Simulated assay, not measured.
Amino acid sequence: MDAIQTMEELQTSVNDHEAYLLLIKTENCSVCEAVEEQINQGVLDEAELPIGKVRLKDIPEVSGEFLVFTSPTLILFLEGKEQWRGSRFVSYDEIIRIMKLWRS
């Protein structure tokens, strides 16, 4: 999982990949830490997509740019456009299902 530090880096990551998953998290958020840990343990390995993470503390404008009102928020971009969004408690099976449909 790539840690993204600037808005330019985020835009480049989204635009340079056909599929890209973004984790947006905040400080002192136990759910954010749990979601990040599950992703790091491979819950989305079957989806085979690059994943980046942004801490709102580092890039506060992400909240306005992507209309993020709660954390954690996962946003799936396909060909540079948002295709799916999940917040708080996320269904990883849904992300995997979307990726399988998109690839077929």
Results as ranks from 00 to 15, higher is better:
residue 90 V to F: 04
residue 20 Y to W: 04
residue 54 V to F: 08
residue 9 E to L: 06
residue 72 P to H: 03
residue 22 L to Y: 00
residue 91 S to T: 11
residue 40 N to I: 06
residue 55 R to M: 15
residue 68 V to H: 04
residue 94 E to N: 09
residue 35 V to S: 02
residue 94 E to L: 10
residue 1 M to N: 08
residue 46 E to G: 06
residue 61 E to H: 08
residue 7 M to D: 10
residue 35 V to Q: 02
residue 47 A to G: 06
residue 82 E to Y: 04
residue 93 D to K: 11
residue 76 L to G: 03
residue 86 G to N: 07
residue 25 K to C: 01
residue 20 Y to I: 03
residue 18 E to N: 15
residue 37 E to F: 09
residue 85 R to S: 09
residue 72 P to L: 08
residue 15 N to E: 12
residue 17 H to Y: 04
residue 35 V to M: 05
residue 60 P to V: 01
residue 98 I to G: 07
residue 31 V to N: 05
residue 31 V to E: 04
residue 24 I to P: 00
residue 42 G to I: 02
residue 38 Q to A: 11
residue 12 T to F: 13
residue 55 R to K: 14
residue 34 A to G: 09
residue 54 V to I: 08
residue 34 A to P: 05
residue 69 F to R: 15
residue 53 K to F: 03
residue 89 F to T: 12
residue 15 N to H: 13
residue 49 L to I: 04
residue 6 T to C: 04
residue 41 Q to L: 11
residue 26 T to H: 09
residue 12 T to V: 13
residue 26 T to G: 13
residue 50 P to W: 02
residue 31 V to R: 02
residue 58 D to A: 12
residue 39 I to A: 04
residue 73 T to I: 03
residue 50 P to H: 01
residue 63 S to I: 04
residue 36 E to A: 12
residue 63 S to V: 06
residue 65 E to S: 12
residue 85 R to K: 10
residue 47 A to Y: 06
residue 2 D to R: 14
residue 71 S to G: 03
residue 32 C to Q: 00
residue 79 E to K: 15
residue 7 M to G: 13
residue 63 S to R: 07
residue 60 P to H: 03
residue 58 D to S: 10
residue 87 S to E: 11
residue 37 E to R: 11
residue 28 N to M: 15
residue 35 V to N: 06
residue 89 F to M: 11
residue 94 E to P: 04
residue 4 I to N: 00
residue 90 V to M: 08
residue 22 L to D: 00
residue 15 N to R: 14
residue 16 D to N: 12
residue 81 K to E: 15
residue 60 P to A: 05
